[in-house]
């Protein structure tokens, strides 16, 4: 039990990092990582939505859609749930913390089309933990608890990569790069070096 949780945490944050190893959520990684501060904000918002989305979609899938035999509608259901959650979260933050809403406002609607969130919701539907997190002993069935831990840690891994990238980009912005390498290409190459560093964790 404890061992499984530890494996999930290590895998989701480091060795199977959502951005740098699984390539989910690259759009905000490239778009919103110009400043460390906004990168951190985006990471926190994504983590919150990921956790909430899994909390709703996983029970819905296992206890409603599977018994009714309508698993094939999962994509349509999930995308609606995520869109609704993002709207609710936006209203909630607007009501309770206007200053946070001011600084986060523009990033919130973008989260709906973030592949990382739909990715988590889809990934945790597997029957066994071992198919989602390599390294866990086979035969441990996925349940809501593991799914939520996975979602939370995937969000933390996402935030980690975003903040690291934000820090690097603040510095490379003013470097005298060749004209064709400016912008996206140089960011991609930097991300490549970061992915190399994260690759080491997969050897654990």
């Amino acid at each position: 039990m404890f061992e499984t949780i530890l494996m999930i945490v290590i895998a989701a944050v480091f060795s199977q990092n959502f951005i740098l190893v699984k390539f989910l959520g690259i759009c905000p990684f490239l778009g919103v990582s110009k400043k460390t501060n906004s990168a951190l904000m985006m990471g926190i918002a994504v983590t919150a939505v990921m956790l909430l989305a899994t909390l709703v979609t996983y029970p819905l899938y296992t206890f409603v859609m599977v018994p009714l035999g309508i698993e094939y509608l999962e994509i349509i259901f999930f995308i609606f749930i995520i869109a609704a959650l993002v709207q609710m979260l936006e209203k909630f933050i607007q009501k309770f913390s206007p200053s946070l809403y001011q600084s986060m406002g523009i990033y919130l609607p973008l989260i709906t089309t973030n592949c990382a969130i739909l990715g988590v919701a889809e990934l945790v539907l597997k029957a066994e933990v071992a198919t989602v997190v390599p390294g866990v002993t086979a035969g441990i069935a996925m349940n809501l608890g593991y799914a939520l831990i996975y979602a939370l840690c995937a969000g933390l891994g996402f935030t980690l990569a975003m903040v690291l990238m934000g820090g690097v980009r603040e510095r490379i912005e003013n470097l005298p790069a060749a004209k064709c390498m400016k912008g996206f290409p140089i960011t991609m190459v930097v991300a490549s070096f970061m992915a190399m560093a994260f690759y080491v964790f997969t050897l654990i």
Binding site: P185, I186, M188, A195, F198
Partner: peptide, 11 residues
């Protein structure tokens, strides 16, 4: 691996 993907895309 993933590092190569980012690198090739950038180039």
């Amino acid at each position: 691996n993933s590092a190569g993907a980012f690198f090739v895309y950038g180039i």
